[in-house]
Amino acid sequence: MNQQDFLVCRCEEVTYNELMETASRNGCTARELKLRTRAGMGYCGGRTCRPLVQQITKKLEQAPHTRVTLKYQPPVRPISFGVLGGGEE
């Protein structure tokens, strides 16, 4: 039975087919897949779909139990420019 396409990243509305096609066409790492599709780069900062995006690229990435640094950029919660500038909310 044909699988209906569905959203993986709710914030940026990136679909499963889009992610799978991009990953297979470009042999992406999780980070590259995010940058190409914007999956995990929306309002929530990837907290919802990050494990799924990593799942897609897992086979292409490093073996388990390898030391890595995870690419997270602050702020890890959306903040206003006022707060970022040190002013009031």
Partner: peptide, 9 residues
Amino acid sequence: YCNIGHCFE
């Protein structure tokens, strides 16, 4: 969706 502040939905 998450009800505890993670997803911002």
